[in-house]
Design a protein around this nucleic acid. Sequence first.
DNA 1: AGTCGACCGACAGGAAAACGACAGGCCCGC
DNA 2: GCGGGCCTGTCGTTTTCCTGTCGGTCGACT
Lengths: 241, 241
Amino acid sequence: MAQYERVEKVRLLVVDDDPPIADLVATVARYEGWEAVTANSGEQALRLAGDFRPDIVVLDLMLPDVDGFGVLDRLRRSGTMVPVVFLTARDGVADRVAGLTRGGDDYLVKPFAVEELMARLRTVLRRSAGPGFQRSVLRVADLTMDEDAREVRRGERRLSLTPTEYEVLRYLMRKSPTVLTKAQILDHVWEYGFGGRSNVVELVVSRLRRKLDEAAPDAGDGEPLIQTVRGFGYALRQAPR
Amino acid sequence: MAQYERVEKVRLLVVDDDPPIADLVATVARYEGWEAVTANSGEQALRLAGDFRPDIVVLDLMLPDVDGFGVLDRLRRSGTMVPVVFLTARDGVADRVAGLTRGGDDYLVKPFAVEELMARLRTVLRRSAGPGFQRSVLRVADLTMDEDAREVRRGERRLSLTPTEYEVLRYLMRKSPTVLTKAQILDHVWEYGFGGRSNVVELVVSRLRRKLDEAAPDAGDGEPLIQTVRGFGYALRQAPR
DNA sequence: AGTCGACCGACAGGAAAACGACAGGCCCGC
DNA sequence: GCGGGCCTGTCGTTTTCCTGTCGGTCGACT
């Protein structure tokens, strides 16, 4: 199933002074089968890093005591090479650049979408796993998504997707053949705090379908790849005959 | 049998200002072997959450004193990660509920069907039981229902069921080989307050049978999977020879 | 053979989903 | 700084298909 086979569960440390955010990330990670702990301050983070020995760290730059960079510095100085993904506020453009140059492995601006965060964490983990890491390619029926190249193909044909379409498709592919409710899709693919309870999901699915169909090998109408489960949600899977 | 093996009984706290509703839920839960207590206000709920230490909470959003989100906040702030399933009015605050399925909680609009509520509670419990949770698959004869993928198969063939058909079948499978009266099925699968004392159940069973038969491995007529117990109800089981 | 319950075809009302058209916003190039 | 194009989401209409009612027929039990 997962490409990044690990014998042990991934251990994630989430550092954010806003407990709801930290918990959100931890919860989602646990659903993926990871172990996750949270810290709400730099001090706590450093202590936990020593005890818990995480495989990866999510680190907010805005902390009450030591700031994110400080935490990173002290982590490095204590000799750990654990990869770090930063979280920064929307307009901290300066922070972004700094974040990358200061030894972080990736960053994401708040508010973020949880699936995107998880995807980045997986990527960073994969890369840091050592040389010759495997590419991550999702595959469902004749659909393939190369997460590294950010390339989606149906059979041989390559499709060009917008960012939102890409994210929705990735989520569907990753969970396939599970049926996902519109609420789940909205909650995972859109930024937390997104107000719209409208029909955005339907719309994106509709657009996705068109692109997928255009690239279908049998120009006629094979069964649609994205199925509607009326009154419930959507699933990506071979249709039942 | 059950996938969510627990040594101790599940402890459920039901919070709803409408006592009949709260009792309905509590009763059904107790019937499933859970321990259940009810609260009719936010204050009472918070007190009980401390004393009773529930494993899961059903929480109406419309409460006389604190509102549902307030209760959730205070629960979380007191450090408990207990999962919550919300109840909301049909067109009331349905939009403010966004963000729940991401944190692992869930919601249901009133009026709901008790089996659906129980199913969601079981799902949320299973997921919060820790990393690497098991999928829930019901199995009766050559019928399998994967509750996570929402996929039903007869042998190899996958059937596509409407929401109502799916719910009735799930109830039958879960209780198999017990004989269920039409009234029981109506009471559990349809929303409480449903007026129809009509023959809906017969009708859905009839439709279900057809779909089940079409997917039967022996194209001829093996005994039907859903048996009629004349004058009483239905049961899902291998026919006695 | 009669009676009563069950089965199921046909239909209609309505709810959910699909999707066309449009508008605001963002980014990019000039 | 300005214009243009693309992406995204809102609105409203159309389409799909799910659900329950009615009633005729069938089958079982007496």
